[in-house]
Design a protein around this nucleic acid. Structure first.
Lengths: 155, 155
DNA sequence: GTAGCTGCAAAGTTTTTGCAGAAGC
DNA sequence: GCTTCTGCAAAAACTTTGCAGCTAC
């Protein structure tokens, strides 16, 4: 993560550079693909700054969302999660997730194969896509093997 | 919506057919593409059955989710929404959503163009996709026109 | 008749807000 | 020095749970 870019973006938006804001960015940067919840970020932040408050985490996350530095994602498990908004090249698109319905594990994918879908939406609806989020639900290899085994045993 | 199929599915699962469960299904069926929240379903249900409780709505939605009759969707606005799980042919996949970041309107798409992405996930991760959810963020035609106008005025 | 379901109210979670003191610029 | 931010606590919003009576089968 480029800390200077974050500081610059904050200043440019008339916001102040505070240790709390940088810390939340650093926590998210050092836990790629973890999809942390606000509570988890809070616990990690307390390791360095025990006096930090949960309200600050929520307010900071809102600021970072407004600056498009991070993304909000939900896997329909009742928790709101946050991840760094990677700035990979021209697309700027967030990455995709494959969620195993067996073990709940979340895989992150970098592929970006929605061009034809986005083209179709533009033609049919006049809707210009600037970002997208894809969630694939299914069974990971491990859970698939487990399932095959139990079926062999006639369960 | 096929009410008989719902009744049959409930019975087959050892659950009881109640007016509340059928009502929630009917409400979702008669509001396609509305992406109703639990509270909205509750308000609609009260029109027919003023004595119904919000807890019943939540419990009923959980039952219908377990039976895969409905889907949970979130548009990152803090609300959990529900929609009928259309049983369109072999795919069984839920449909996609295009969310306008200008006006917040949500368009539902029926296209299902993720075959190549799903194939790639299978090859690279051994992950078998059984369902997917796609959210496209961008600007709808209307908001795009508004934006163009204000830019012409030098705003 | 029995097991499961509902409505109500109370409790649990997650997230937001108000305010006084602290910190950035 | 003025404005914005933070930490704490209280409040709000959303969802779940306990229980007694009711309903499906």
């Amino acid at each position: 993560m480029n800390e200077e870019r974050v500081k610059e973006l904050l200043r440019k938006s008339g916001l102040k550079v505070t240790s709390q804001r940088l810390m939340v960015m650093n926590i998210l940067a050092s836990h790629p693909d973890s999809h942390l919840t606000a509570e988890e970020i809070y616990d990690l932040a307390k390791e360095n700054s025990p006096e930090i408050g949960l309200a600050t985490i929520y307010r900071t996350l809102q600021v970072l969302l407004d600056l498009h530095l991070i993304n909000k994602v939900t896997f329909d498990d009742g928790f709101t999660r946050y991840e760094l908004n990677g700035e990979k090249g021209a697309s700027g698109h967030r990455h995709h997730h494959a969620i195993c319905t067996g073990c709940g594990k979340v895989y992150s994918l970098e592929t970006d194969l929605l061009d034809s879908l986005e083209q179709e939406v533009l033609e049919k609806l006049g809707f210009v896509v600037t970002d997208h989020e894809v969630k694939l639900y299914g069974l990971c290899q491990e859970c698939r093997e487990k399932k095959d085994e139990s079926e062999e045993n006639g369960t």
